[in-house]
């Protein structure tokens, strides 16, 4: 039995740009739903009209509280006030490690944790509760590595994309779920407003040619670096003995740094 709060944001599909449940927030909700039953509070700060909110309800969430505010507002204070008003106070605050569709800086959970005076652990993929009011967390690191750590409640965790996939959202529960709207006063996010905004366009890949220890940085190196990403560099061994082949593979892998030294 543990009381948890989940912060859910509205995501944005990378291809269509349509609103959807944010992938890591959905995983946070999945984790919350899989914890032993306690009180679950789901909060969203933003527009209560987004169709993506129903996607969260479709996962089996009975109620979602929306702190209604216009776009470009700073939700930190409003969320903080709402979390502080929860009684009993939740022991765990779960959310995705990065929103998609807003500033996407991943700062909000840190600001909340600092203001609440709670510990924060980012990029979590698994959570087990201990009897003594602490929890064992597993953090996802690069290249499939995992790190375990322990933290005492209350704490904030942000969920990594490698966490278990969220259950599908079902139409029936999504239709039946309740959205409670609370109008809040949120200040304008001045730092965000000061930024220039324009559509993103991909930049050409930065070529790290001639980096320390690398090639000479000449034209040939640049050409190679620009083209080798697409087609193979095309070393070909035809009909070597198995041992020759093995050695070639071994050397190649070692060059790539894939083998344990």
């Amino acid at each position: 039995m543990v009381d948890v709060a989940v912060l859910l944001s509205v995501g944005r599909h990378p291809v269509s740009g349509r609103a959807r449940r944010a992938p890591t927030d959905a995983r946070a909700l999945e984790l919350a739903l899989s914890l032993p039953p306690g009180r679950r509070t789901a909060l969203h700060a933003g527009s209560p009209d987004s169709p993506a909110l129903r996607d969260y309800l479709g996962m089996g969430l009975a109620e979602l509280t929306v702190l209604a505010m216009a776009e470009g507002r700073d939700p930190t204070d409003a969320l903080l006030a709402r979390l502080r008003a929860l009684s009993p106070a939740p022991s765990i605050l779960l959310t995705g490690n990065r929103a998609e569709g807003g500033e996407d800086s991943g700062m909000l959970p840190y600001s909340l944790a600092h203001a609440l005076g709670w510990a924060i652990v980012p990029d979590v993929v698994a959570l087990t509760l201990n009897d003594d009011g602490s929890a064992e967390l597993v953090q996802a690191l690069a290249r499939g590595q995992r790190r375990a750590l322990r933290v005492a409640m209350p704490f904030v965790v942000t969920i990594h994309p490698a966490a278990p996939a969220p259950r599908p959202s079902a139409f029936g529960p999504a239709r039946r779920g309740r959205i409670t709207v609370e109008a809040v006063d949120a200040p304008e996010d001045t730092a965000l407003a000061a930024c220039a905004v324009r559509p993103w366009r991909d930049r050409p890949k930065r070529l790290t040619v001639g980096a320390p220890g690398g090639g000479s940085g000449g034209a040939l190196d640049r050409l190679r670096a620009a083209t080798e990403a697409k087609a193979g560099q095309g070393r070909l061994l035809v009909g070597p003995t198995p041992d020759e082949a093995a050695r070639a593979i071994y050397d190649c892998l070692q060059e790539q740094g894939m083998l344990p030294r």
Binding site: H13, V15, S16, G58, M59, A165, R167, P168, A170, F171
Partner: peptide, 30 residues
């Protein structure tokens, strides 16, 4: 199973989610 339970098998559920978000089962731009 799909509309009430959300119990569509994993890969199929992913395709349905892409369909809802992009109107194509493969998640491509129209």
């Amino acid at each position: 199973q799909t509309l009430e339970r959300g119990a569509t098998p994993v890969k199929a559920a992913g395709v349905l989610e892409e369909l809802r978000a992009t109107d194509t089962p493969s998640g491509r731009a129209l």
